[in-house]
């Protein structure tokens, strides 16, 4: 508990979490507002459409999570951290947990905010979160944001540089995962097992012929995050701070 409080103090005594919270909400809720306000009468407004901005919000959250650790390396406060808490695994796990919890809250706010603004703008569309799939889509965003924050912290620990970590976290889901299916013959088979494809299968799926159920896909994504985090912890313990 002490370590969680330490990381909470550290996170909220810099400005970046507030900016990220604001940006993530503006982007997701703003896009939802824009898309519902400009939708043509014959455009079917669904719960899924209101969540259009989720990937943008996810990017902002991953940047925040990565920065929470890479700035510690940049300003060498990681040394002060390890000096105060020589158990590096505990120190880094506490940070990961605090960042992930914040990311989760941002995710829920973004998802329900997007849905809420859509119902305000187009009340006659009779939007409702009714089916299990709807709930997964909206409420599940928080889970995805939280796990993605774990992934981002792990990448941040491994790379130790803001620019490098952010580049990887942007290029992987936006470029690599969209281009893999283009590879002849094996492309589609690999694509099914890519982490952010699994995220889509959880939130908006199942589409196509996924190897896992929606919740299985989320578990798979969580597994990827945990493996990366474990690698990051092993590295941080071996490396000179």
């Amino acid at each position: 508990m002490t370590l969680l409080a330490v990381e909470r103090i550290k996170l909220f005594t810099t400005r970046s979490p507030w900016w990220c919270l604001l940006t993530a909400l503006t982007v997701t809720v703003g896009l939802a507002a824009l898309i519902t306000a400009t939708a043509e009468a014959d455009f079917p407004l669904t719960v899924e459409v209101t969540q259009f901005g989720r990937m943008f919000g996810l990017m902002v959250v991953m940047v925040m999570a990565a920065l929470a650790i890479t700035t510690e390396y940049r300003f060498s406060t990681i040394r002060s951290t390890f000096q105060a808490i020589p158990n590096r695994t505990a120190a880094l796990l506490a940070k990961t947990l605090v960042v992930a919890l914040l990311a989760m809250v941002i995710g829920e706010l973004a998802a329900f905010g997007s849905f809420g603004i859509a119902t305000l703008i187009q009340p006659e569309a009779n939007l409702a979160i009714s089916s299990a799939a709807d709930w997964r889509l909206v409420a599940g965003t928080g889970l995805v944001y939280g796990l993605s924050a774990v992934l981002a912290v792990a990448v941040g620990v491994l790379l130790r540089q803001s620019a490098g970590a952010i580049s990887v976290l942007m290029i992987w889901p936006l470029l690599v995962e969209t281009l893999v299916p283009v590879i002849p013959r094996v492309g589609d088979d690999i694509a099914k097992w890519l982490p952010f494809t699994a995220v889509d299968q959880f939130l908006a799926g199942p589409t196509g012929n996924p190897p896992l159920s929606p919740w299985g896909s989320l578990a798979y994504f969580a597994g990827v995050c945990v493996v990366l985090l474990a690698a990051a912890l092993v590295t941080a313990n071996k490396r000179d701070a």
């Binding site: 002490t2 370590l3 409080a5 330490v6 103090i9 550290k10 005594t13 810099t14 400005r15 970046s16 700035t71 510690e72 300003f75 060498s76 406060t77 040394r79 002060s80 951290t81 000096q83 105060a84 808490i85």
Partner: peptide
């Protein structure tokens, strides 16, 4: 207690906040 480098501080964090998290970490 150690001072290895005076610049090992987050530039956007206040002096008090910097000491607060350190104090918290060791109760």
């Amino acid at each position: 207690g150690a001072l290895l480098d005076a610049k090992w501080v987050h530039p956007n964090r206040s002096a008090r906040a910097h000491l607060q998290w350190m104090a918290k970490s060791n109760k």
